[in-house]
Computed example of a mutant assay.
Amino acid sequence: MGKEIQKSYKFATASASLISVVMLGLAVLLQAIYIEVHIGPSILFFVLAWVTTFLLIQLRLESYIFKRVKEVYDKVELIESSAIKSPRITTDMNTLIQELEHFAEVKKLEIETLKDRENYRKEFMGNISHELKTPLFTVQGYILTLLDGAINDKKVREKYLQRASKGVDRLVYIVKDLDLITRLEMEDIQLEKQDFNLVSLIQNVFDLLEMKAHKKDISFTFDTDYNTPIYVHANKDKIQQVLINLFVNSIKYGKHGGTTEVAIEPLVKNKLIVRITDNGEGIQKENLNRIFERFYRIDKSGSRKEGGAGLGLAIVKHILEAHQESIYVESDFGTGSEFSFTLEKSKTKL
């Protein structure tokens, strides 16, 4: 506090000294011109004194504020030093307050973002640790049992080796998905786009997942008969993976005897939208903004009854973003969910 008072006194003293010297000069000048004091010279002295004082104070304040504000900008690196020019810095306190409020708001948002990222990092590390340690400990347990002597029993050996192999397969599955997401985030995958019939691709995915859906008596269907092919321009294999992940998700959280319906609708001139709707358990509102995060699970109990590593929707999101497309989700808890995504129409009619 003492330093701030000292600086203000220093500024005031320097300004007062300058004004006093200028006033003295003006008085001497007027006295030299006018021997006797008249009303005219007095008014002239007043005008000259006021104008001179105003200009001195204004210039001094501009210089003072410019230097102090520039120091703040330089220290916090809010903007480049070269962006601050003396003519733009004035004694307008409203402008200065707005600048500082804007700066404070930006910093507040940055701090909140950093906190969210830190929480996400901690949660992500916890999730990935959980996902990896489960199959790792499973494999380790079976191998240690075999090394302790169970390897001599043929039946036990084969059973434990098969179970250990399943654990390794799960590890490989998780690592491959993580590698795919990482490469998509780093734009390390070249998406070779082509024109293909979307209706035919969806039907192929229906056939591929038919047995899995049959276990829960879930039926796949179109909202209408698509007798005419609908061609899109995208990476066929990656869009197939998007469809598989979304359909598998609808099976996991769908109810027995339920349905998963697909609709293909025009959106704008060169875009269409694919809607995948189920009548499953739905998603609670507080989870909607996070379901595309890696390893994020709606079920906080840690249950793995539905399988999966919590990477399916994250992969969907990254594949579509790599295509510069969008994905949306709407859900009523207890009623069902609808996932929809956009695709580019084929420019050529095949």
Rank of each mutant, 00 (worst) to 15 (best):
Q324Y: 10
S8C: 11
E99C: 00
K108Q: 15
F45C: 00
E330R: 06
I19G: 10
I174M: 15
G254W: 15
G167Y: 14
F103N: 09
I151D: 13
P229R: 05
Q58R: 07
Q190A: 10
N245S: 10
S346A: 03
R163N: 13
A14T: 14
L201I: 04
N227Y: 10
I128W: 15
Q284I: 04
F66E: 14
Y253W: 13
Q324W: 02
L147R: 10
M23T: 04
L313T: 03
A164W: 09
G310D: 03
L350M: 06
K269Q: 14
T221C: 08
I298L: 06
T182I: 06
S219V: 07
G280N: 03
S337M: 11
K75L: 09
K122E: 14
I315T: 13
K154I: 13
V106F: 06
E281N: 05
L30G: 06
L24W: 09
Q241T: 08
E286Y: 13
T95N: 02
S86N: 03
R68M: 03
L184P: 01
L313D: 07
G282V: 13
V76G: 12
H323L: 02
T53Q: 12
A83R: 15
S219T: 07
T277W: 01
E71T: 07
V274W: 09
F295A: 01
I89M: 06
E192K: 09
P135L: 05
I251A: 12
Y231P: 02
G310S: 07
F339V: 01
I319H: 00
R121W: 09
K155L: 12
D299L: 08
E77G: 06
A234G: 00
Q140E: 14
K300T: 11
I327C: 03
S81R: 14
P135A: 02
T224V: 13
K345N: 03
Q58T: 09
K255T: 15
E338W: 02
G141C: 01
E71M: 05
L44Q: 07
I151H: 11
E158H: 12
Y226I: 07
E286W: 08
E286C: 00
L161D: 04
V199S: 08
L201E: 14
K176Y: 11
N235D: 06
L343H: 02
L136T: 14
I251E: 11
V106H: 04
P41K: 07
R121L: 15
A314T: 01
S17T: 14
I89W: 05
S326I: 04
K349C: 02
I43M: 06
F54S: 02
I202N: 05
P135D: 06
K67T: 12
A14C: 10
T52N: 11
F124M: 15
S219Y: 05
N279W: 07
L147P: 04
E338D: 11
G312I: 01
S82G: 08
I89Y: 04
Q240S: 08
A12Y: 12
A14S: 13
K70D: 15
M93Y: 12
K176F: 11
I128S: 12
K269G: 03
Q241C: 00
W50L: 08
I151V: 10
N94G: 01
